[in-house]
């Protein structure tokens, strides 16, 4: 019962004209997992999630959610999934409770449990005391929480979240994650989410790294980090150029020069540091080592860093739209 695939994708392809956004994806997500779909903008994350949510049709391949083929019976799939979109989709002129009532109606939450369910999901995201305020008065983080609550209202089998924390400040993001991480335990729901924030991927049980429409690796965060090898050591010296061959000899791997720092992977960072200091002829001015992060994994798999801070032009437009919306709608 526990090892039952809730989402199953086989050789999924989606082309927009000549552009292949998704190029043959296979994956299985088990019930109760928090599954992260990680990749840079334009990697094919949103396209895949939209196919699974029946918002887009695949060009070829098969996908099923909660045992239902997404192409065969989209309406049945929709009744079993909850969705939190990248862009907000609340009615700002209604209260939180009214937004939830609307949702309960169109998702056929039976009248007998409607009130109770609404109270439960509001409680789940700590919005009970603000339930009757108009959403316009909510902060960005509160709106997101309300959207998560709404996605959970009709007891879905799978909750899909497309970049659930995009545009939120780090503190709010952590807060939102506090709620999300609890959901599988509390409600038995499976979470499938996309993100391009590496630190958020750490909350996931398993991660698929996607780039250029293909899955590069799947595994738990720890499994993926093991792909990098040992620890990542960052070294600065009085003369990096002279130090480079010496460090290479000690570490047995070629350091990468990055912005005045030499970075090298070693199996055991703690043992490496004393050797480094003892055996190099130039002065080591600073040294730090850390366990590899998912950033390092991504770098290793794709040969480039995921660009977190650099917003795309659509992100910009989205931000402007939000700013304008705040003013335009009393």
């Amino acid at each position: 019962m526990a090892e039952q695939a809730v989402i199953s994708v086989h050789n999924l392809v989606k082309s927009f004209g000549p552009v292949e956004a998704v190029r043959g994806i296979d994956l299985d997500v088990q019930q109760g997992e928090i599954f992260g779909f990680l990749g840079p903008n334009g990697a094919g994350k949103s396209t895949t999630i939209n196919i699974l949510c029946t918002l887009l049709r695949a060009t070829s391949g098969a996908a099923s959610v909660a045992g239902i083929d997404v192409d065969h019976d989209p309406a049945a799939v929709r009744s079993r999934i909850g969705l939190v979109f990248q862009d907000p989709s609340l009615d700002h002129q209604l209260t939180a409770r009214e937004n939830l009532e609307f949702h309960a109606f169109i998702y056929d939450v039976p009248a007998s449990v409607r009130k109770q369910r609404i109270a439960e999901v509001l409680e789940m995201v700590d919005l009970t005391d603000r339930a009757d305020s108009v959403v316009m008065t909510y902060s960005g983080g509160m709106r997101r929480r309300l959207e998560i609550a709404r996605g959970m209202l009709h007891t879905p089998d799978v909750l899909f979240l497309d970049e659930p924390t995009i545009g939120l400040d780090p503190q709010t993001r952590r807060h939102i994650w506090g709620y999300l991480a609890e959901l599988p335990k509390k409600a038995g729901v499976t979470i499938f989410m996309t993100t391009h924030y590496m630190d958020e991927a750490e909350y996931c049980g398993r991660i698929a790294i996607i780039d250029h429409g293909q899955i590069q690796a799947v595994g738990t965060p720890d499994e993926l980090k093991k792909m990098v090898g040992g620890d990542v050591v960052s070294i600065t010296t009085s003369d990096n150029l002279a130090a480079l061959p010496e460090i290479e000899a000690i570490a047995g791997a070629k350091p990468i020069a990055d912005n005045g720092t030499l970075r090298v992977e070693v199996p055991d960072g703690a043992a490496f540091v004393p050797r480094l200091v003892r055996e190099t002829s130039v002065e080591v001015t600073s040294v730090a080592f850390r366990r590899p992060s998912l950033d390092d994994v991504f770098l290793k798999l794709t040969g480039r860093a995921i660009r977190e801070e650099e917003g795309s032009s659509t992100d910009m437009m989205r931000m402007m739209g939000r700013a304008w919306m705040g003013r335009g709608r009393r």
Binding site: G32, H154, D157, K185, K186, A187
Partner: peptide, 14 residues
């Protein structure tokens, strides 16, 4: 179905 504790009450989707 799998609702481990009594927090969630609802009609099963099917």
């Amino acid at each position: 179905m799998s609702t481990p504790n009594g927090v969630m009450v609802g009609t099963p989707a099917d």
